[in-house]
């Protein structure tokens, strides 16, 4: 059985758990608990260790989705999660510009030494004050070749389209055969 891995990352509260829950075919082994540190002010529940999702592609192939933990004290997990990943989805809460800088730091962390294929998902587009994907591209200073895709993490079709866009980027870079 071959497994391939994708990482779903983004600032605290960007929608990582929701995104994986929406598409995964097994019960997500996410560890939600009352937040204790820097995230307490924002939300009651946060991902403590990581999120995990699974999509079987066939008898011999499975896709694993790993969500990074939001809280800073789990940053060491990232290095481990990012090893050998096929691609990366960066989720952004489009309604909270105060998280854009943090989002940039996350992108830098993942792509500074590896040329990992990634897309940016402009999440929570269903909310009234969401910044548009075009505005987010400028705010996050993403070059035109990086896709910034509108997303509603609770909507399955929307999550599918984000994963597919990422897969097209990966396809472009993959070897023949």
């Amino acid at each position: 059985m071959q497994t391939v891995k994708m990482v779903i990352s983004g600032a605290v509260n960007s929608g990582k758990t929701e995104f994986i829950k929406t598409i995964s075919e097994i019960e997500v082994v996410s560890t939600e608990r009352r937040a204790t540190d820097d995230t307490k002010a924002i939300k009651k529940e946060t991902t403590v260790a990581m999120d995990f999702g699974r999509i079987a592609i066939g008898n011999d192939l499975v896709l694993h989705l790993f969500g990074t933990p939001g809280q800073k004290r789990f940053d060491f997990m990232w290095e481990i999660l990012s090893e050998g990943m096929l691609g990366l989805v960066i989720l952004v809460d489009s309604t909270r510009p105060e998280t854009f800088r943090e989002t940039n730091r996350i992108i830098d962390f993942f792509i500074s030494y590896r040329d990992t294929p990634y897309v940016v998902a402009a999440n929570k587009q269903d909310r009234p004050n969401a910044w548009s994907p075009d505005e987010l591209r400028l705010a996050l200073r993403q070059p035109p070749r990086i896709k910034v895709i509108p997303c509603v993490a609770t909507d399955r079709e929307s999550v599918k389209s984000v994963l597919l866009e990422l897969l097209y980027v990966i396809l472009d870079r993959s070897s023949e055969g």
């Binding site: 391939v4 592609i57 192939l61 896709l63 096929l86 990966i170 396809l171 993959s174 023949e176 055969g177």
Partner: peptide, 9 residues
Amino acid sequence: LRRSLVSRI
């Protein structure tokens, strides 16, 4: 990755 594999996904 091989193209065929990505296409399957």
